[in-house]
Design a protein around this nucleic acid. Structure first.
Lengths: 225, 225
DNA sequence: CCAAAAGTGTTCCGTCTACACCCATGG
DNA sequence: CCATGGGTGTAGACGGAACACTTTTGG
């Protein structure tokens, strides 16, 4: 094979994953203490180096699969980070991806295996490299998109109550939402479907369980909430 | 220096620039026929390979400076593109940046030197690699941001009429806007300042010239238009 | 004098917001 | 029986959309 670009520099390329979960009232991020040098022991996102035969998406997917055991999840590129000295180990270009998962689906033994912790956004520690900026950008992206894309459901179980869904919105946006207005808007879309099941875990009288209307919103379309 | 990441693969990293201009009624992109193999002769964005001592931003800036002769311009990352076979020459990870320039400021001899053409969005030809996708994503980003960030001014001269400004919005959004409503909203912000100059180039009776209120909107803040 | 673009307000309608009470149930 | 969270409707404010005519002046 002809080598066209030989005269140019090559770089390490990595993917860093911002994994968001929801603890019932707040957004959480999965972070761990770095287990390699440099920066061993600093709080860090989980990432991996790009390999020759995989796309950026593939790399993010592979990283997230090993990390969570989950194969299908919401995943989206946040952006590329390329400051010269962003990584103290060597020059690394990193592409940040954010993922949303339902904490209940998450295999906690994997969390322990990798030494990871769920940390709520308001308690984020100082972090390795530019990982804090990555998280910040990911949150901003989430906020912009939550009202127009059906992504909140990725943070919830298959069945959820409307109150839980509202809590997700409040956690992402960082501000309270009026219950009646929220439900009114929901009803105007057909984005959630009522089931005949009732959840008794959080209320004496029980709350209706809903599910996301997957058929109509498969490919991340635009919604209006 | 200790080499921490030696066991990992390295990649060529490039920056591709989507340069938008405005011809008075439509958005245009600066593209050229590729002057190197592979893909020689195909329509392509202008890009450059990342060098060891520069950040992604720096690389985009360097590329745009050599291309346009302009040193300060609106520039923003669109995203990273990393499909395995996206570039027929070799594996290249490319970060797309979009820039907005005022065509009048542009040194046309540079355009000819690099063999570039202004092409309106509705006449985009087939393009090299994934450059069409990059342009598409850049346009979508522009549309999302135009009402909340003061970026339209980058496509116009220092002094402009309100009609010109409206045409920029219409070109970006791809749909007509009501003149009176547009001006009413503009007035509610203090984003433009009227000058006492009159433009006679497009009208018998002349139109007031305005300028962007730079002092208040220096660091790309949020506006509401 | 006429063609062409600039400039200017009002009304209506729909949307968003604020707001409070009853219900059902498990303990 | 009572504490807790679930569920529901309305009125008023606000913002966005639709809409047409007058003015200016260069040719």
């Amino acid at each position: 094979m002809v080598k066209y670009y030989q005269q140019h520099d090559k770089f390490y390329v990595s993917v860093d994953c911002i994994v968001f979960g929801f603890d019932g009232s707040q957004l959480e991020v999965l972070i761990g203490k770095r287990q390699m040098d440099p920066g061993r022991g600093e709080w860090s996102l989980y990432g991996g180096f790009l390999e020759a035969n995989e796309s950026l998406q593939d790399c993010a997917h592979r990283t997230l699969l090993s990390l969570t055991g989950l194969d299908e999840m919401y995943m989206r590129q946040v952006g590329a980070f390329g400051e010269v000295d962003r990584d103290p180990g060597d020059r690394v270009i990193s592409i940040a991806y954010c993922a949303l998962i339902n904490v209940k689906d998450y295999d906690d033994s994997l969390r322990e295996k990798y030494g990871l912790e769920w940390v709520t956004l308001d308690k984020l520690p100082e972090m390795y490299s530019d990982h804090r900026l990555m998280i910040h950008n990911a949150v901003m992206q989430l906020r912009r998109r939550i009202y127009t894309r059906p992504l909140s459901f990725n943070l919830l179980p298959e069945l959820f109550t409307l109150t839980q869904l509202q809590h997700v919105f409040e956690a992402v946006l960082g501000e309270p939402i009026d219950k009646r207005n929220f439900r009114k808007r929901l009803k105007q879309t057909d984005i959630v479907v009522q089931t005949d099941l009732i959840d008794h875990s959080s209320s004496r009288s029980g709350a209706m369980l809903y599910r996301f209307n997957k058929e109509k919103y498969g490919e991340e379309p635009t919604i209006k909430l």
